[in-house]
Design a binder for these strands. Structure first.
Length: 419
RNA sequence: GGAGAGAUGGCUGAGCGGUUGAAAGCACCGGUCUUGAAAACCGGCAAAGGGGCAACUCUUUCCUGGGUUCGAAUCCCAGUCUCUCCGCCA
């Protein structure tokens, strides 16, 4: 969310920056509502002052006047409430402003490749897709999942389940032992307010799984990413400068409705309602956002380097970035069966966008209170890493070689083949 | 599920109808002292919002939402969360 005070300073500049996002926002209405809102505040405060003076004077002859003032205040408050709701509604649906580094674009086709890494494997046979490989090994079972649950779920079995678990441990170990992240095992449900804080609500409610709890009225949602719960750890806080940067990592299941992607990636486990992901979150001084983004992205790509998987690094264009992001790098891993790169990690700086929503601040050296910068990135999506290993490490006979770095995590198993 | 207790500033914690935005301590910032540091001492120190070029000033906020009152951190009602005891249980 944007700080209205900042927007007000230069409405036109704000409008101009927002054009890069290609979203339609009623700026005139926003400006108008802000103006009216401030008028009401002034009227209200004048009356409040008057009332306060009466009560301080303890002059009983003025007490009835005070009652009258109270009712006028109520009337103003009522009108102001409507304006405030409108204002909030507009404001909370405005995305973050893209950083000047971000290329302008209208679709994912405008994302810009920064660099390619690793060697694309050559096969002397037609490489199979991960679902063919997994089903042949009898270790991926999509039919069983539709039987027990429904579409876009999968059973991962046997050695592939082992591999999945090994990946989680390997990634967590790397981030905690080498990259300075603190491991967290968080709740998988988030409150409505937490979902608002990171920007999933109110605009993207359709993508979220809401969970009905019997007691209480508070709404709860299954986390679509651990980003939600990790970032909201610092909600409503004024942090000590010494506690920054704060780096957190968690490996959790993630739940997404994938509304609006009907017919997309219906085969295989590229796009599921539930998947494991190792997520990194950093809370930093606002001026250190971009620096931290580079660091975080390197932490993500480092995992691919260690797994010896070929990938490329992309910078997302203005229209392909997430709602809360000011700048995003996508890491795409090579998938031989599709003969192309597919997203396996997304690292974003959200500047102060989320911290304004969450009210996360810190005191700098001068004791000034500033909004914190927040960043999040996958390090990596486990399901998709599993896919990448299956496809890139496949052999002609349908067996899978296990990447060397993972073997210590898998009882020194070297290869997965049909039992 | 049953019975109690509580929620106050960055933190700990007093206050239980009238300059209380809130004692005290810790933390933090500035200063004195010191070769430097620590200790000690002195001073400063809540946030959000509005107005003003500024100095500054006003309003709101003691979990949330209602209510009583001229006036609420303080009284009443509802909700949320936390803790203790009992029961149940992974």
């Amino acid at each position: 969310m944007h700080n209205l005070k900042e927007i007000r300073k230069d409405f036109d500049a704000f409008e101009k920056k927002m054009q890069k996002r290609s979203v339609d926002i009623n700026f005139t209405k926003l400006k108008d509502l802000d103006l009216k809102n401030r008028e009401f505040i002034q009227k209200k405060e004048a009356l409040e002052k008057e009332k306060k003076d009466i009560s301080k004077s303890k002059d009983s002859s003025l007490f009835s006047k005070s009652k009258e003032i109270s009712s006028s205040i109520d009337k103003i408050l009522e009108k102001q409430k409507i304006i405030k709701i409108d204002l909030e509604k507009i404001l909370s649906n405005i995305p973050n402003i893209p950083h000047s580094d971000v290329p302008f674009g209208s679709s994912e086709n405008d994302n810009v490749q920064i660099e390619k890494y690793g060697k694309i494997p050559r096969f002397d046979f037609k490489p199979r897709s991960h679902y063919e490989l997994g089903e042949n090994l009898k270790m991926l079972d999509f039919d069983l999942a539709s039987k027990t649950t429904g579409s876009r779920f999968v059973f991962v079995k046997d050695k592939l389940a082992f591999l999945e678990r090994a990946l989680s441990n390997f990634m967590l170990d790397t981030h905690t032992l080498k990259n300075g992240y603190q491991e967290i095992s968080p709740p998988l449900l988030a409150s409505e307010n937490s979902m608002f804080g990171t920007g999933q609500l109110p605009k993207f409610e359709n993508d979220q799984f809401e969970v009905k709890l019997d007691v209480g009225m508070d709404r709860k949602f299954l986390i679509p990413t651990a980003e939600v719960i990790l970032t909201n750890i610092v909600k409503n806080k004024i942090l000590d400068l010494k506690s920054l940067p704060m780096r957190l990592v968690a490996s959790t299941p993630c739940f997404r409705k994938e509304a609006g992607s009907y017919g997309k990636d219906t085969k295989g486990m590229i796009r599921q309602h539930q998947f494991y992901k190792v997520e990194m979150v950093s809370i930093v001084e606002q001026k250190k956002c971009l620096e931290e983004l580079e660091r975080m992205t390197n932490c993500a790509t480092n995992i691919l380097d260690l797994l010896e998987l070929p990938y490329r690094k992309m910078i997302l264009c203005s229209s392909d970035m997430g709602f809360s992001a000011e700048k995003t790098y996508d890491i795409e891993v090579w998938l031989p069966s599709e003969d192309k790169y597919r997203e396996i990690s997304s690292c974003s700086s959200c500047s102060t966008f989320q911290s304004v929503r969450m009210k996360t601040r810190y005191k700098d050296q001068k004791n000034e209170i500033l909004y914190a910068g927040t960043l999040n990135g996958s390090g990596l999506a486990i399901g998709r890493t599993l896919i990448a290993i299956l496809e890139n490490y496949q052999k002609k006979d349908g067996s899978i070689t296990i990447p060397k770095i993972l073997r210590p995590y898998m009882n020194n198993l070297e290869k997965i083949s049909l039992n």
